[in-house]
């Protein structure tokens, strides 16, 4: 039996269908990402699990018990809201301590755990600040600390890293993954960043218009997309000779599909090519190995492995 299961979960706002019959089974300790474009119903799904949006249909079960019958305050979930939702009148330490206070944790133990968790998210020296006095990324980490400190049975993260710069985001991703691995907290992450979702999750739920288009491990969803939407949403794709080919799986050869380099963009660890062919524009990604690469305007031939 799954730890957390969503069964035909739906939400209608008037005539607008935000979530449409979503079915998902999450195992204990699993890291699942809801991935999809803006407005596809990710936040709504998360808020239904948290209990702040009432489903129009379907069921949510935690270890077989009906979660919808449990009050939001009793669900014991750790949530990071998309808007952080920090308590503006409390310091960082008070924000993080609030959940422990509600659980009746003794003051000394509280102080210790708050300090520990702030250290974990790299905000050890910010305990006395108010949210107003912090950057968006710092506030986001406070929100993460506030959710982690109560050691919830499920962690719900609504775009928890969207406001961090690239380097910090990568660090936090590694941190998050490590925390999740060591503590073993079942985690549901909402994101529209496919790289983040693939880097962190055991399984992806690719959503579009309130429906799950594909549920599976990142590698599988990437290599064998169930629908054209999934294929185009997870990285770039080319449609050549009636088959979809990923840009990084095409290479320059002495024979094959003939074309001409239209643009060539250097992106550090790889080159991004746009090749004009008889089949239309083809995107090619080649690793930067230091070798000489075809320049703009050059005639080339493209080859790829048959799948």
């Amino acid at each position: 039996m799954a730890f957390l299961s969503l069964e035909g979960l739906s939400k209608h706002f008037g005539t607008h269908v935000a979530v449409d019959g979503l079915t998902l089974a999450v195992e204990k300790g699993e890291f699942v990402s809801l991935l999809g474009p803006s407005g596809c119903g990710k936040t709504t799904t998360l808020q239904m699990i948290a209990g702040f949006v009432e489903p129009s249909g379907g069921a949510i079960r935690l270890e077989g018990r009906d979660l919808l019958a449990v009050k939001p305050a009793k669900r014991g979930l750790g949530i990071v809201f998309q808007s952080y939702a920090l308590f503006p009148h409390m310091t960082v330490a008070e924000n993080v301590a609030f959940g422990l206070e509600m659980q009746g944790v003794a003051a000394a133990e509280r102080t210790r755990r708050v300090g520990e968790t702030l250290e974990l998210v790299g905000l050890g020296t910010f305990a006395g600040r108010y949210p107003r006095q912090m950057s968006g990324g710092q506030q986001q980490r406070v929100a993460l600390a506030r959710a982690l400190v109560i050691r919830p049975q499920i962690l719900l993260l609504d775009e928890p890293l969207s406001n961090l710069d690239a380097k910090l985001r990568e660090e936090m991703q590694i941190e998050l993954r490590q925390i999740q691995r060591t503590v073993g907290t079942t985690t549901i992450l909402v994101t529209h960043d496919q790289a983040e979702a693939m880097a962190l999750s055991d399984r992806l739920v690719v959503m579009n218009h309130g429906r799950a288009e594909q549920i599976g491990p990142p590698h599988e969803a990437y290599e064998r997309p169930a629908t054209p939407f999934v294929a185009s949403f997870l990285g770039r794709t080319n449609l050549v000779n009636g088959t979809t080919v990923r840009p990084e799986k095409i290479w320059f050869a002495t024979s094959g599909l003939a074309g001409k380099v239209r643009t060539r963009i250097f992106q550090g660890n790889h080159w991004l090519y746009q090749i004009e062919t008889a089949d239309g524009l083809v995107t090619v990604i080649r690793q930067n190995t230091g070798e000489a690469m075809p320049g703009e305007g050059e005639a080339v031939h493209l080859a790829w492995a048959a799948t």
Binding site: K74, F98, M102
Partner: peptide, 18 residues
């Protein structure tokens, strides 16, 4: 007021009066 802030408190286990 941001209603999500109240929700955040509820999620952390706070009752209506708190």
């Amino acid at each position: 007021l941001d209603p999500q802030i109240e929700n955040a408190a509820v999620a952390l286990g706070a009752g209506p009066f708190t």
